[in-house]
């Protein structure tokens, strides 16, 4: 039995139950989310495990990881702060917010802080145009929205995370 299946037997069955038994391929995206839950990215081995559960080729699973932006095949910070800089948010200061936050953290968009805690990413519309600047945080606990944000408030949030997360560098 694969790692994924033994770890999440119940969850996987619950997911499969949503779709007709002969259409279990529909479960591939929910299973990818599940595989991503622990490490924040999808490790290579998970692709064949999902393929085995759903009778799919590994490449058929991998093609989805490439297509959909919420799936990651590379490790990043424990928390991915994904800032919308699309038209409506940019009209309300999101680009300045992005620059300010990156300067405060001394990283560029797309980079991770040295302690491995936070990655800053620029993303497309998150459907919260009236509450810019805004971002979502993708991390172990799924995805959460943060709206009407300031650099100061975000730095505070990050220091709260720092207190509860072990330093990735020290772990190595």
């Amino acid at each position: 039995m694969s790692d994924l299946l033994s770890k999440y037997t119940k969850e996987i069955q619950k997911i499969l139950d949503k779709y007709p038994p002969e259409r279990k391929r529909s479960a591939v995206m929910p299973l990818l989310f599940l595989a991503q839950r622990n490490e924040g990215y999808i490790r290579e081995g998970a692709l064949s495990e999902i393929g085995e559960i759903l009778d799919l080729q590994e490449t058929e699973v991998a093609t989805l990881v490439g297509f959909y932006t919420l799936f990651h095949d590379q490790q990043a910070g424990s928390y991915r702060i994904q800032i919308c800089t699309d038209l409506c948010c940019a009209l309300r200061g999101s680009e300045e917010f992005l620059t300010g936050l990156c300067e405060a953290l001394e990283i560029k968009p797309g980079e991770t802080t040295r302690d491995g805690l936070v990655t800053i990413e620029e993303v497309k519309c998150l459907a919260a145009c009236d509450k810019a600047p805004m971002y979502q945080v993708q991390g172990e606990a799924g995805i959460s929205y943060h709206e009407n944000c300031t650099v100061e408030g975000t730095l505070e949030l990050i220091s709260e995370w720092r207190e509860v997360t072990p330093d990735q560098e020290e772990l190595k």
Binding site: M29, L64, F67, Y68
Partner: peptide
């Protein structure tokens, strides 16, 4: 009634791309 999550692709709002995505394929 079931919920089903996409994974970050605007194109899946187009109804036939949505169907493909729900079937477990690229949108």
């Amino acid at each position: 009634i079931h919920t089903h999550l996409g994974a970050g692709a605007y194109i899946c709002g187009e109804e036939t791309a949505l169907l493909e995505s729900l079937e477990g394929k690229r949108g």
